[in-house]
Design a protein around this nucleic acid. Structure first.
Lengths: 163, 163
DNA sequence: AATTTTCATGAATCTTCATTCAAGAATGCG
DNA sequence: CGCATTCTTGAATGAAGATTCATGAAAATT
């Protein structure tokens, strides 16, 4: 960035604090938009789909060329760095809540045996799995196939999806 | 391990080669058992469930206390290290094939619109998502809830799961 | 404009860590 | 047992990288 060490240390103190600030900003900027889409769609199901489409689009376009900064940091540092652990847990929680609220909006369509909260956690899991797989440089077709499968439980009652 | 640098360098040459050897061994030892369970079960669906149960049991028991070495290495190094990228892609492929073969055994029960290959990739994605979430130290109940939801597409036609 | 405060510079320092190597111990083999 | 080979030791080397600091430039304030 053309900055000298002294300026950076003057502004942020040390490398770790700088990183935490970058991570917070990343989650604000990049992740907020995805999460906001969940509630913005006309139905919960469409909101969830929109989240995953936004995620896959980022992966395919190269916007997420190095994967998700949050997930990367979490995988590398979470067991030694409480701040990273906490930030990322909060992020997971936000995402889980957004998914759960979406599912509760469509509750009438959900398979009966599962609670929205389990479903929401499951969707968080799928999102993180996609962040892992993003590092294999998957194409749009593969990602859409995965998301289609992941969405099946949410669309299970639509006749054209279940024989 | 009580070894001195010289001995390690004598045996493995350098840190990277040592790590690659450790990673290969890990995937042989730890991952093989999980994958083998998929084909060993009486039905494909039970095989898949058995894989995920093995995974969650590892997470809960502390056997996978630091997450999956393969996934960790992949997340941290894949974009700069072709060997890690290749090893892990091969691992994903093996897992995908095992899942696909399991799904093809139960094909009659699958939702009609999706190909087993997409389904298999989806299951690989869920497994990786679980490896990410393992770093939040989730309890057995949460993990089982996630796996139950993830398995729904595979059990979609069983009356007690879909209203 | 003069002065004070804030910010930028980049070379120097200090740490960490991967790697090497000369010397010594252990092991195998005739 | 004696020689050769292999393995182990742990301090030294060297490189990469995190951090500091004295100096100078810019901005703000009077």
């Amino acid at each position: 960035m053309g900055l000298n060490p002294g300026s950076v240390y003057g502004a942020y103190g040390n490398k770790h604090d700088l990183f935490i600030a970058a991570m917070r900003r990343y989650l604000e900027d990049v992740t907020r938009e995805g999460i906001d889409r969940i509630a913005a769609a006309p139905t919960g199901r469409e909101g969830i789909r929109s989240y995953f489409d936004y995620l896959t689009e980022g992966i395919v376009s190269g916007r997420r060329q190095w994967g998700c900064l949050g997930t990367n940091a979490f995988m590398e540092m979470a067991d030694r760095d409480d701040t990273v652990q906490t930030i990322m847990k909060e992020h997971f929680d936000k995402l889980e809540v957004a998914f759960r609220e979406a599912l509760e909006r469509d509750r009438a369509d959900l398979p009966c045996r599962l609670e929205p909260v389990d479903f929401a956690r499951y969707l968080v899991c799928v999102a993180q799995g996609l962040n892992v797989l993003s590092k294999t440089a998957p194409d749009r077709q593969k990602l859409n196939g995965i998301v289609d499968a992941a969405m099946l439980p949410v669309t299970a009652l639509e006749e054209d999806c279940v024989r």
